[in-house]
C-alpha cells in the first residue's frame, strides 16, 4: 500500500527555510511515501495564540482545516506547529460554534504528525539510509520534548545515520530562550538563556546542532554565528536527506 501525506511546511519554513521542506520531501519519497503540498496552506496560528491574539488565529485554523481535511495524513516539519494543532485547535474551533468546522477539526487533529514521529511511529523506520559523517548534538526543542513527547524518535533516526557521531549536550532539555515573540519582548532574558545554551554547545565540541524546529534553530544559529563559533545548525530532515538521491 502506498502511503500518501500532505506536507505542512509552515509559513516560517516556506519563506525562510525551503531547504528543510525540500529535504523532508526527499526523505519521505525515498521511503515510498507520496508527498503532496496543498497550496492553500499558510500558517498554523501559533504566533497569534502565543502572543495573546488567539481570536485572530481562528481564521487561520479554519484555513488549515479546510486545506488539509481531505488529506489522509499530514506531516509537519515543525514540532511547535504540531503542538499548536494538538493543543489548541479544538478549543479554537469550538469558539466559532461552527459545527462543521468543529467536527472536521476533531477528525483532523489526530492525523497531524511531526516529521520524525511520522517516520518512526507511522512508517516504522529508523534507518532512512542517510550518511552524515560529522559530530552532532541533538537539541530537544521544548514543544517536541514536552508537548509531543518526541525524543526517542529523533535519537533513533540520528543513531542510524552513517558516520554520524551523536554527542550529549549538557542541560540539553533546557529551553534555548526563543519562545516566539518572547525573543523580542524579553530580549535580554532571551539572549541570556541563549548564551548558556550556546556555551553548552561549544563545550560539546560539535560541528552541527540538530533539532525539530527551525525557529529555535534560527535563534541558536543567530548567536552561534555572532560569536563565530563555526558550529552550524540543521533541521533533522536535512540531516536525513544527506546522501539520499534527489537531495538538492
Amino acid at each position: 500500500m502506498t502511503r500518501s501525506v500532505s506536507l505542512f511546511v509552515s509559513c516560517f519554513n516556506d519563506m525562510l527555510f525551503p531547504n528543510t521542506a525540500r529535504a523532508a520531501n526527499v526523505v519521505l519519497r525515498s521511503l515510498g511515501v507520496k508527498v503532496e503540498f496543498p497550496r492553500r496552506q499558510t500558517c498554523c496560528g501559533q504566533i497569534h495564540v502565543n502572543t495573546g491574539y488567539a481570536s485572530m488565529a481562528v481564521p487561520l485554523v479554519r484555513n488549515f482545516v479546510n486545506t488539509f481535511s481531505g488529506a489522509e495524513e499530514i506531516v509537519a516539519i515543525s514540532g511547535s506547529c504540531t503542538a499548536m494543532v494538538r493543543e489548541h485547535y479544538l478549543e479554537l474551533a469550538n469558539r466559532t460554534n461552527d459545527v462543521n468546522l468543529i467536527s472536521k477539526t476533531r477528525e483532523l487533529v489526530p492525523r497531524v504528525f511531526e516529521f520524525s514521529e511520522y517516520l518512526t511511529d507511522v512508517v516504522g523506520v529508523s534507518d532512512v539510509g542517510a550518511t552524515y559523517p560529522h559530530r552532532v548534538s541533538y537539541h530537544p526543542t521544548c514543544h517536541s520534548l514536552r508537548s509531543l513527547h518526541i525524543y526517542e524518535s529523533a535519537i533513533k533516526l540520528l543513531g542510524a545515520v552513517r558516520g554520524l557521531q551523536l554527542i550529549d549536550l549538557s542541560f540539553a532539555e533546557q529551553c534555548c530562550g526563543f519562545g516566539g515573540t518572547f525573543s523580542v519582548k524579553n530580549s535580554p532574558m532571551s539572549t541570556a538563556i541563549l548564551a548558556d545554551k550556546v556555551a553548552n554547545i561549544v563545550n560539546a565540541k560539535v560541528e552541527t546542532v540538530v533539532a525539530l524546529d527551525n525557529s529555535c534553530l534560527l535563534h541558536i544559529s543567530g548567536a552561534l554565528k555572532r560569536n563565530n563559533t563555526g558550529v552550524s545548525v540543521m533541521h533533522l530532515a536535512e540531516v536525513l536527506a544527506h546522501g539520499l538521491d534527489g537531495v538538492v
Binding site: P18, G222, A223
Partner: peptide, 14 residues
Amino acid sequence: VARELPEIPKESFR
C-alpha cells in the same frame, strides 16, 4: 543585539 538575522532565500518553498 546578540543574534544574526538570516538572509531571505531566493525562492520560497511553494
